[in-house]
């Protein structure tokens, strides 16, 4: 991939960084909402990569916008995940004052 434009390769680099931040955040942070934000970061890294790769694949001979359409699909899925996830976290908040994944430890063994 030597013919990649600077914009595309920079975007890909950024998306890799975002994805790494997301993965590390999920592993390190303890608050469910922050963990969830990190997961969203991972999905957005994928979106950025999709759009950048679309630009890389786009040509006069094959003017397809697949990657950008895929990104919209991923956005829609992420929105559905937010709806379900925040509802679950709010339901937990209702029963306890603090929500911390270290304290959610009824099930173990």
């Amino acid at each position: 991939m030597s013919d990649m434009s600077v914009v595309v390769s920079n975007s890909l680099f950024l998306s890799a960084v975002l994805f790494t931040i997301g993965v590390l955040g999920v592993m390190i942070r303890r608050h469910p909402v922050i963990i969830f934000m990190c997961i969203e970061l991972m999905l957005n890294a994928a979106n950025l990569a999709l759009v950048a790769f679309n630009d890389y694949h786009y040509s006069k001979a094959w003017p397809a916008l697949d990657g950008q359409v895929y990104a919209f699909m991923v956005i829609a899925i992420a929105a559905a995940e937010v709806a379900v996830g925040l509802a679950i976290i709010v339901a937990l908040f209702k029963r306890r004052e603090r929500v911390d994944v270290d304290e959610i430890n009824l099930l173990r063994g």
Binding site: L12, S15, F19, G22, V23, V26, P32, I35, F36, I39, M42, L43, A45, A46, N47, A49, L50, A52, F53, Y56, D66, G67, Y70, V74, I77, E81, V84, G85, I88, I89, A91, L92, R95, V101, I104, L106, L107
Partner: peptide, 29 residues
Amino acid sequence: ANQESSLKYFLLGAFGSGFFIYGASLVYG
């Protein structure tokens, strides 16, 4: 127990989905 199971399933399930779609975007690339 139900709530805890729901939260854990959600966080790890979504984490897995994140891996899947990022991988899919690289395959697309």
